[in-house]
């Protein structure tokens, strides 16, 4: 496997007013290869979003290392991002906050196209088609679109830049249930079609099961279990994973209470 992204014993802490330093990530090691989908699952506050931010250089790491194609990922300060690091892109959780309300969606997708080394790879129209939207919508503003449509635009913008690593930080959590699996599958399809690796972060193991090859389960800043997604889903080993799986309400109409 061609390893793109490697996290080695990464530790991140935050200072929280009145509570001292909080260890958000306590020694996480992960690796993501080209053409694979790694699911990162955990509940709120487990540190999974902090990992996404750290990989993009948005938060400083205390210890350990994050390397992308063999080079360490540097903190994104005030300066322009290093072109090498621009091969890592992210789709955010809230599609209502991740698009600039004052620019048309077409222009925002162009922002992505501009940094793609392969200029001929996409056009705005082809990307819109790829995310199952009308090419004519390029001239619309974000507030004219629904949440699911906006998230497709955010995905198109990230794909437009031709990323090697695509990170989805809870990209489907604020969408209607019937859209979640579809948008997640769309991310998988586009990431794999472009040869990228996808790090898909979610609290919902049932969605991750559908799109990921491997899954890592996080709790309290640590990875408690990692493995092929089917194995973890069917034979969870860690007690926490078992608890997490048991808590997912089954859609069987039997009225069984989870947990």
């Amino acid at each position: 496997m061609n390893v793109l992204l490697e996290l080695d014993d990464v530790r991140v802490s935050y200072r929280q007013p009145g509570r001292g330093r909080i260890q958000a990530v306590r020694g996480v090691s992960l690796s993501l290869g080209a053409g694979t989908v790694l699911g990162l699952v955990g509940e709120s506050g487990c540190g999974k979003s902090t990992i996404a931010k750290a990989v993009c250089g948005l938060v400083p790491i205390d210890d350990g290392s994050i390397t992308f194609r063999g080079e360490p990922v540097r903190r994104l300060g005030l300066r322009r991002r290093d072109p090498h690091a621009m091969r890592i892109q992210m789709v955010f959780q809230n599609p209502y906050a991740s698009l600039n309300p004052r620019r048309t969606v077409g222009r925002q997708i162009e922002d992505g196209l501009r940094v793609n080394p392969d200029q001929a790879a996409w056009s705005v129209a082809s990307l819109l088609e790829e995310v199952e939207l009308e090419p004519a919508w390029a001239s619309r503003y974000p507030h004219q679109l629904s949440g699911g449509q906006r998230q497709r635009i955010a995905i198109a913008r990230a794909i437009a830049s031709g990323p090697d690593v695509l990170i989805g930080d809870e990209p489907i959590a604020s969408l209607d249930a019937s859209l979640q699996a579809r948008v997640a599958l769309l991310m998988r399809k586009l990431a794999l079609a472009t040869g990228a690796g996808l790090l898909f972060i979610s609290h919902d193991l049932s969605v991750v099961r559908v799109i990921a090859d491997e899954v890592a389960v996080m709790n309290a800043g640590e990875i408690v279990e990692q493995g092929r997604v089917q194995r973890v889903w069917e034979h969870p080993e860690a007690a926490y994973t078992q608890r997490l799986l048991a808590a997912i309400p089954a859609v069987d109409g039997l009225g069984r209470l989870p947990g």
Binding site: R188, D213, I248
Partner: peptide
């Protein structure tokens, strides 16, 4: 029907079976 079919929980196939 479509709501239920769209749920990931009802999709028994893993990623290997998806395009």
């Amino acid at each position: 029907r479509s709501l239920i079919d769209a749920l990931p929980a009802t999709q028994t196939t893993g990623p290997e079976a998806t395009p």
